[in-house]
Design a protein around this nucleic acid. Structure first.
Lengths: 215, 215, 215, 215
DNA sequence: TCGTAACCGAGACGGTACGTCTGGTCTTTTT
DNA sequence: AAAAAGACCAGACGTACCGTCTCGGTTACGA
């Protein structure tokens, strides 16, 4: 995934006036960065976002609280970066040759990440936190949702090129139909997120997209 | 809607040994009930679930915290009841004669509730809270998600009876495809929840369901 | 000493609107009062006022920080009460029959308290703290300095009655001459606070007071 | 006053191994010295010692914190030098021809300095700080108290030479009787530091010293 | 003229304590 | 026996300074 960490996006606090080429003062410790992120990741996996306090992150990382706040302005911003460190690159951009294959691979990749790794818990916690922290909500859209959608849009573009689906299809709606049900089950937990479920969703979407084709 | 408040479901605390016909002591004040619920509803609408503290609910209702906790075991449980008071009955069970009409009416009813009333904010806040409070998650499923699904299943049963769709369709998947995308947009806010969006979703689902029909 | 703790003086926070005879709600725990005061006294004796943090007082007393702040609004106010608990009653009101005997007993009582018990350290710390906290300064004057002066004034009144000194002597100045040098040595530490020193001070004051007598 | 700043006394940190005649490396900036001292003096006068943080001194002087700490090892040491810069030379060594005149001039000089210039606030703050920093306490005695006492002792020696007082008088006690009451009022603030007060103190001391004279 | 030593401003570092807030429980008196 | 009130313990919050450290860079001496 090419959403590599771009400093300054979530709440990443830029050093002074940015483009000042000769940075003054002691440089930020990269080791502290790593220690904080991995402490956050551990706590997130162990106890969920609610159980990840800045206090304990700092203590576990062997770092002062100011050192944490200097880098991340809020719990959510830190959790988001910890999540991305785990989650990024896990999401494949499949190219199987058919729309059905691509969508299925993408959806299964997602459902497996969230059911088999700590990413699911983190993801649910972050969406929850984003409901109360608008800044986190914006960062979440910009750094997670949109980059993933951009990648997945490519699958649809390829299907259009191949003539599998109409060129005027509303790709936003298709992507919401693909992932919305999965997020729904993850967050509400009313039914399990199985491979079979993923296939059924994809079957129906592909059938629906093909239905109004000239045949 | 038949999800009328059934004491004991969310966490409703029963009076002593329940079936004891002749209750002793001072009866619970129904006015306190109302004052608490409406204070909670106000705060929820004004500031979202994050801004609704038990402390302030009690203060605004002119009631001791104990009185609140005697009735609702947690912030989430109270918020859930406040939400249901607002949301219940708002969700219609349409009967238009066609599957497409029914699904569209149901989805539009939902999207309008969440975009035009405080219900949307409450709903998002409750799903968020449910991520950190498993008991609330269970109550949410039992008192909101499942009753709604039961009602909506009726629409699919009628379509089967009419022969519009196959009898062996997986109704769970269809319902997740119907509402999942809408929840997705509500919680992530990446695209707006428009009437047009509702129609596109329903169009595609109905097309997909009809595709594998014999005729 | 009759400066028994008068609630409301230092910063003692009164319960609600004071004269409300029937106090409602859970009463303040007297055990918490005791635990906090004795934790404060211990820390004060061990490490001085600088080493007495509210954090540690609360921890050592097994009490929440709010419970401490509910009673004492600042570190200084708490320290002042802890000091009085130790110091009060230690200061005698001598009645030896002569001015010289009375002044000497009073001054020696004071110097012995401050040199042989933890009171000296507390006293020095409190005067220090009072320099930066005006509210504490006022409480210090009202609850320590003035009550002591009132008691000591009695010695001078008796001497006037006996005809040992003139009736128009400025008692404030005499008291400052009596205790000022001792405070000076305590706070600056440039010379020791010995019994001999006390006697020399008293000798000179009594001589000075008698000098302008008709004889 | 001849207590001109003697480097190395308070905590003044000498450059390398001191007597090495040919100092190598960049010399210390005298401008930084001045900027720091005057920033400290300003802050001390504005907000007292409690409001003078090393952080803000450095910022206001436009200097790195290291540069401050290289010169003064602690807040107290810096404050002491700032105080001396203000206070020194203000204290006269009177020579009026009589003990009474000398003592009165000396005491009034002191009380006027502390009541009419920022020196009083600084002095009180420094004595306070010295209670928690023993090194500062020692420096305070060595650089302020003792030099002043040495000067004032001269007044007593002259009185002995003139035969005004006995040669075996304990000069330490007399000086504590002279200044102790004034420090007492400054630090406790229970009574004002007036010229009248100074005269009353001096009157009584001189009377007391003369009493046991052969006459 | 070059190297080296000590300085410079800036600012990050690990810590401690602050005073506030809320959660959920407990203990009173009053109804 | 339930109500209202309010105290209880616990612990996270974000801030302010502490005194130390690490940068890139400057200034002056001695080789």
């Amino acid at each position: 995934m090419d959403t590599a960490r771009i400093p300054g996006t979530t709440g990443e606090i830029p050093r002074s006036s940015a483009a000042e080429s000769a940075r003054r003062g002691r440089p930020r410790s990269e080791e502290a960065d790593r220690a904080i992120l991995s402490a956050a990741t551990e706590l997130l996996a162990e106890r969920g976002l609610g159980g990840m306090s800045m206090e304990e992150v700092a203590a576990r990382a062997g770092v002062g609280k100011t050192t944490v706040y200097r880098r991340w302005p809020s719990r959510g911003a830190l959790a988001l970066d910890a999540f991305l460190t785990e989650f990024q690159e896990q999401q494949p951009l499949p190219d199987t040759g058919t729309l059905h294959g691509d969508l299925l691979a993408a959806l299964r990749g997602w459902t497996r990440s969230v059911t088999r790794t700590p990413a699911g818990r983190m993801l649910a916690g972050l969406i929850a936190e984003a409901q109360r922290d608008p800044a986190l909500g914006a960062a979440w859209r910009d750094r997670v949702i949109e980059p993933l959608r951009a990648r997945h849009t490519i699958m649809l573009d390829r299907a259009i090129e191949r003539g599998e689906i109409r060129a005027d299809v509303d790709k936003d709606v298709v992507l919401d139909l693909l992932f919305g049900p999965a997020y729904h089950r993850l967050l509400n937990g009313h039914r399990p997120l199985t491979d079979r479920f993923a296939r059924q969703v994809v079957d129906l979407i592909v059938a629906g997209l093909s239905a109004d084709e000239p045949a």
